[in-house]
Simulated scan of single mutants.
Amino acid sequence: MSTIKEVAAEAKVSVATVSRVINNNGYVNEETRKKVLQAISTLNYMPNEVARSLFKKQSKTIALIVPDIKNPFFPEIARAIEDVMSSQEYTLILCNSDGKVEKEIMYLDAMKQKYVDGIIIVTSTLTPKHIETRDIPIVALDRKISPDIPSVTVNNYEGARQAVQYLKKIGCQKIAHIRGPHAISNADERYKGFMKEVENEPWFHPELVVNGNYNVLETTEATKGLLTKYPDIDGIFAGNDYMAIGVLKAAVQLGIRIPEELSLIGFDGIQLSQLTNPEITTMAQPIYELGLTAAEQLLEMIEGKPLVQLHHHFEVKLMDGQSTKR
């Protein structure tokens, strides 16, 4: 593999001149620039990005830390972020934390050591202190960390209320909720939105809320237990589309027809919800826009620009599928 010294020798210039051409930094006359570029092409020279990162303490790389890459919501978010970053010649590193604070801290430290330029993180465990002590641009996505840390989120509470209101509108008389994990802010907000709409209903009982932990297999088993104990449930609001798929599976195993006997609505609007049979009615987040906005925020922070808006808060909207009565 050729070295920068060999390029300099081939072009009959100094190593510093080659460096200025490669980094587009400092004046080099056009004739000399052409000689250097020709030498780079002749020798098939590839700049050492690791060495460049160590020298500049930046790497044209950002990290995305998510709690569960198996949840289809996060790959869709990652696609939007990657589109923005690649257009600016940044590389994206994807990290799966399993929602564990020790893994999130490990990734923060590892990315800092690798001179990653910034991080987008989905977390319910990190505190502002974890962020402030690491001195690296960070944007919180899907879940806020603190009022002082930039974030991109949606109105989970209102979206959940609208989901339950829709189930009532189409005639559901007993509605259950498959909620996400406790202490995860968006799951808690969706639960609170559900409760606002049902807590004063004569048919409501706390056992109509079960935890699917944002996991499709756990949701399948939890739903089977719920529908076996309360066979008169005719509506379910699942806290995300991934769990809604678990509800579909449970209904099939119990011989319950959707939507004829049970109406189902999810939350997120992932593409997979349109590929199930029946297609899932859902409260759709603007997923691509969320990722794009988080990426643009991070780029502004990396470039040292002041953020015009610290927190971006989007609304969700009903995407009518086939899993609810007409």
Rank of each mutant, 00 (worst) to 15 (best):
T3D: 05
I4F: 00
K5P: 01
E10L: 11
K12Q: 09
K12A: 14
V13E: 07
V21Q: 02
N24V: 03
Y27N: 15
T32H: 00
R33S: 04
K34A: 08
Q38K: 12
S41Q: 14
T42K: 11
P47Y: 08
E49L: 13
P67A: 03
F74M: 06
R79D: 15
Q88I: 14
K100M: 08
K100A: 14
V101W: 10
K103Q: 07
I105C: 10
Y107H: 11
A110S: 12
M111T: 01
D117T: 05
D117N: 04
H130F: 07
R134T: 05
V139D: 00
V139Y: 04
L141R: 00
R143C: 02
K144A: 10
I149P: 00
P150T: 06
V154K: 01
N155V: 09
N156F: 05
G159V: 06
Q162E: 10
A163T: 01
G193A: 02
P202S: 02
W203Y: 13
W203M: 09
W203I: 01
N213G: 07
Y214V: 09
Y214C: 03
L217F: 15
E221I: 11
E221P: 04
G225D: 10
K229N: 14
K229M: 13
Y230I: 07
G239Q: 04
Y242N: 08
K249W: 13
L254N: 03
I256T: 08
E261V: 03
S263F: 05
G266L: 03
F267K: 00
G269C: 01
I270G: 02
P278D: 14
M283E: 07
A295C: 13
E300F: 14
M301T: 05
M301V: 11
E303D: 15
L307W: 08
L310W: 08
L310H: 12
H313M: 11
V316M: 12
